[in-house]
Design a protein around this nucleic acid. Structure first.
Length: 419
DNA sequence: TCTGGGGTCCTAGGACCC
DNA sequence: TCTGGGGTCCTAGGACCC
């Protein structure tokens, strides 16, 4: 029988902001999405003020008068803090599956003899000491049960941030007190439907007949139900699987009309996507570009379109990718609309090592070293330092970021000052 | 005035093949 | 009455996650 742990950083983005601004501890904080659009993270205090996840910022703006602290999202900082937390975990456990920026599963097989609670409390304290980030740890037989354990660890202060759900009694308690909508894999839609069938808690789904679940919810639902019963259906991922698509998209700070402005944006997205591609040692067979107007503005003319094009051969060359994406943009661009959002996809990704070069197009020997140099320079001097072709200085499409914190840990100019 | 940006997996249905 | 019986591939759409 497997044993899995799940660590989850508490209110991660808000906690990151607090590490470098300790005076924010105890205050309600929200972190906003790109463009300061909506709330994507809340501190405990902000949750208690009743601010929902995903709430548009303009609806909670007034709460600043009541002490709400607001920050624009600062992903360089969060990414770096995440690395620190994950590195810290790997000092304890060799098998760590990084699940998201603020979550990781731990393979605890072979550690059954330990006092897992005491062990976890030690991990928790060490992460806090080394990084300043508070975490919660849930331990159970399956990933789905770990999620439940973790939530209990987080929500019930007397657990000290750690919950172990292994004994019959512990499990029963965990399942019986978890509303069905809080189960991992059960979204809003399913929660609503299941309640109609009298399934209100995780325990009800765990006890439902297998055939009924299979018929009603398909294999995905069945997996969830089995996981709740302690049968592991979701494997521990030893190594991160290769990405299948890469997407870079943004909504703009102000709406764009001119083709030049859109080209500028698409070019920047294409560059970033190509860089992600090379970092993953992948090549793409297809690209896609989409543009759209602001769907929230009924009074304006609406238009949305996308264009997918094949690359001549599987490729990771920024020059070709940018060129092809600009070509796709020209196909779909229509004058006279106010564009609010655009983005690019790289599709049909395959490992570079497995890609077959084109028979017809000669291999560009210089491409790989050139791209390496490009990535190196951009890493050293900051994103966008070196580009393909020209880049205009005036970037109308830059996102609005009115509440930014500095990149404390990833930019020399923005290091925190001690005195 | 102001509403995120990434991803994954599954299913159903159609086209097409032998 | 009864309209084969396999299969593959592709796409669109739905649902979910953080």
């Amino acid at each position: 029988m497997s044993i899995v742990g799940l660590i989850d950083c508490n209110n991660f983005y808000a906690s990151c902001e607090r590490v470098f601004e300790p005076n924010l501890i105890g205050k309600p904080i929200v972190v906003l999405s790109n463009n300061d659009g909506c709330v994507i993270a809340r501190s405990q205090e902000a949750k208690q003020m009743g601010i929902p996840m995903g709430e548009p910022f303009f609806k909670v703006k007034y709460l600043q008068r009541e002490g709400l602290v607001v920050r624009s999202c600062n992903f360089p900082l969060y990414g770096d803090m995440s690395n620190r937390v994950m590195t810290c975990l790997s000092h304890f456990i060799p098998d760590v599956e990084i699940y998201s920026i603020d979550e990781a599963f731990l393979k605890l097989k072979g550690l059954e003899h330990l006092d897992l609670r005491a062990y976890s409390l030690n991990i928790r304290q060490t992460v806090l000491d080394w990084t300043g980030i508070p975490i919660s740890i849930g331990i159970a037989r399956t990933k789905t049960l770990c999620k439940i354990a973790n939530k209990i660890a987080k929500n019930e202060p007397r657990r000290g941030g750690v919950e172990v759900l292994l004994s019959r009694g512990e499990l029963h308690y965990g399942l019986a007190t978890t509303p069905i909508g809080d189960v991992w894999g059960i979204g809003r839609r399913w929660a609503h439907k299941l309640k109609g069938d009298g399934i209100h808690y995780a325990l009800d789904l765990a006890n439902a007949p297998e055939r009924w679940v299979r018929q009603k919810m398909g294999v995905v639902g069945l997996r969830t139900a089995l996981e709740l019963r302690g049968t592991a259906c979701l494997a521990f991922e030893e190594e991160t699987p290769d990405k299948k698509t890469i997407c870079v998209s943004r909504s703009f700070g102000e709406m764009l009309e001119s083709r030049e402005d859109l080209e500028e944006a698409i070019k920047t997205f294409a560059m970033r996507a190509a860089e992600k591609l090379r970092r993953g040692k992948l090549v793409a067979c297809q690209i896609c570009v989409f543009i759209r107007t602001n769907a929230h503005r009924d009074e304006l003319k609406q238009y949305r379109a996308s264009q997918t094009l094949s690359l001549e051969y599987p490729n990771d060359d920024s020059r070709l990718i940018v060129q092809t994406m600009l070509k796709a943009l020209r196909h779909i661009y229509r004058k006279g609309f106010q564009y609010k959002q655009a983005g690019v996809f790289l599709l049909e990704l395959i490992p570079k090592s497995k890609a077959t070069p084109s028979l017809l197009v000669p291999v560009d020997e210089k491409a790989t070293p050139l791209m390496q140099a490009l990535d190196h320079l951009n890493k050293r001097f900051g994103e966008g330092s070196v580009n393909v072709g020209q880049c205009k200085k005036t970037r109308h499409w830059y996102a609005t970021r009115n509440f930014s914190s500095p990149r404390y840990t990833t930019c020399w100019q923005e290091l925190p000052k001690v005195r």
